[in-house]
């Protein structure tokens, strides 16, 4: 998703597993892939680490604190969660 996302916007993390396709560097944890969360706060724009990791020209992407209910991932978790995620990993939910 591109464009500024307002706090409260529902999003889904892309259900994608780049690590199964060869060398990569991603900052989206395995356990949030495909999960639905809510934009908590916009954190600014930062260069894409997936390209920086290979010393390639890296564009700036919007970074968000996205809030999830951890119980929906693991029933025993009893907490919620904030994760920094780049816009390139977020879809409309």
């Amino acid at each position: 998703m591109t464009g500024q996302l307002a706090p409260g916007t529902r999003v889904r993390v892309r259900l994608d597993w780049p690590e199964t396709r060869g060398p990569c560097h991603i900052r989206t944890p395995y356990y949030v892939r495909g999960q639905e969360g809510v934009i908590h706060r916009a954190l600014g724009r930062f260069r894409n680490p997936e390209k920086l990791a290979f010393a390639r020209p890296a564009e700036e992407l919007a970074l968000y604190h996205v809030r999830f209910d951890l119980r929906r991932i693991w029933p025993e978790a009893d907490a919620d969660l904030l994760v920094e995620l780049f816009e390139s990993w977020l879809e409309a939910a």
Partner: peptide
């Protein structure tokens, strides 16, 4: 008391 876990994954 609710727990909010913060997974520090990126630039902050």
């Amino acid at each position: 008391i609710a727990i909010r876990v913060v997974d520090s994954t990126a630039d902050y």
